[in-house]
Design a binder for these strands. Structure first.
Lengths: 261, 261
DNA sequence: GCAATAGTGTCTTTAAGACATTATGCC
DNA sequence: GGCATAATGTCTTAAAGACACTATTGC
């Protein structure tokens, strides 16, 4: 019996299907991207985190916003599914990707076949998001169903995706405390002030510049490039690049993901 | 087309199946439990961690040792599947259970249908493991396929279960550094020396008793019961109980698991 | 010179670790 | 009394945080 010929109640009795969904953070939406309806572009506001959502076009939860993602083809790794579906939503690869948690509550897919979702979270760096090209009509139509939202002002989400976003925010915050993930929000070169601002955006509180400098430099993974900023109406700042080994996550045992920058 | 009528190569093209496997740690195997073939019971040896394994009776990896677990029925939560399969192996419920990571590499199930495994890890406390009853013949036969192994001397494992165990050990070690999971290895009352020994067993190194005492008490989650040990040929030790809130994990949002002790 | 931010120095507080010292039960 | 471990106290060191101070650019 094929899936399409089944009644709704029969579908519930099938073994659970597996999908991947990804919470992809960026410091700001890409140039020219569609912004979520409720989201006003507060120009001078506090820095916040942004993430792309996709409007669902079929049940369950048709018309609602959801995390980018989809089912796992038999011959694609979990990481690759996450990357492919992210690429479909943003036309770009993130600089960082890590598995977050697996959600498998029985009722989470409403009346449809039970769905176990393996959630990932990702970071897009400063210049890693391309502006939507929208060259082909297909692409244009697809873009209409993608929009960027501030993590503070999310719409109602499909499934339990609101829980997933909340958990991803938790993980991002706790992980910036002891690891170097925050670097993935920045480009190759950056000032200590920029790095501090990333930290402030993630934690949502201000950080003492002097103490932050001491700590950041004492870790040993910052290398001065010798270059400095100019044009600002104040003392120029030294530029650094990140020199540590990238953060490990268990996928790296087998199918590591690292941006090719 | 039914699963059994498919050829091996056809099975590989099916959508991935989902299963749960659990790494369940205890400070020592239950009284009277079968021990793994390679495992000598070093009486006076350093404290190590133990875990139960199940011998597989069907392909893939037939005859090999594997983590307790199994597929997810359509109407059972992930946590409940973990608990049910653990109970089948040990006749007991663990004091702690937390999701670990999901493993979905394409080749991990060899020639069979692709298998995505959501791994959990669990802790059994001092008195939480019952001796194998083995009353009914069915039970007896099942027990023959379960044995306890020292985490230091594991046999060759099915699938990528060796990776899963290694990752669970990592998580246990890092989590004892900043959380209170270690308490779940102990009973209701315990001395500071016992708590310290748990920590030493997990970290694999000795800890200064004086400094450990200061830190443990300053956390504020230990309450003196007023009782003390006796019978030892040295000064009696005060008994404490754990008073903090149990460790949170995302499952507690929906289907929390906590031992009913 | 002034505004603004980069970068340095210093003081206080907290916590970890090493280790000496005292306390108390059993033999 | 002697042994073994419980429990307390003291000293050193490292790191975090608060904050004053100096340096360098654009205007």
């Amino acid at each position: 019996m094929s899936y399409r010929s089944m009644s709704v109640s029969e579908r519930r009795l099938l073994p659970p299907a597996v999908a991947v969904s990804t919470v992809a953070f960026a410091l700001r939406p890409p140039e020219g991207a569609r912004l979520g309806p409720a989201t006003a572009v507060a120009a001078g506001a506090e820095a916040t985190l942004w993430l792309p959502l996709v409007r669902r076009i079929r049940p369950p939860f048709a018309e609602q916003w959801a995390l980018p993602g989809g089912p796992i083809p038999w011959n694609e790794t979990l990481v690759d599914t996450a990357l492919r579906t992210l690429r479909a939503a943003t036309q770009s690869d993130p600089g960082y990707l890590e598995q977050l948690y697996s959600f498998g509550a029985i009722e989470r897919s409403a009346e449809a076949q039970r769905l176990v979702t393996i959630a990932y979270w990702a970071l897009y760096g400063e210049n890693e998001l391309s502006a939507p090209a929208g060259e082909t009509p297909d692409q244009l139509e697809e873009d209409l169903n993608v929009a960027w939202f501030s993590a503070d002002e999310l719409p109602e989400l499909a499934f339990d995706h609101a829980d997933i976003v909340a958990y991803a925010l938790d993980r991002l915050r706790s992980k910036t405390a002891y690891s170097t993930v925050a670097f993935h929000f920045l480009g190759n070169q950056f000032t200590l002030a920029q790095l501090r601002e990333v930290r402030e955006a993630i934690l949502g509180e201000t950080v003492d510049p002097a103490n932050f400098r001491r700590q950041a430099l004492s870790r040993g993974y910052l290398i001065s490039t010798g270059e400095r900023t100019s044009g600002d109406r104040h003392r120029p700042a030294a530029l650094y690049r990140f020199a540590g080994s990238p953060d490990q996550n268990p996928d790296s045992q087998t199918s590591a993901y690292r941006s090719n920058k």
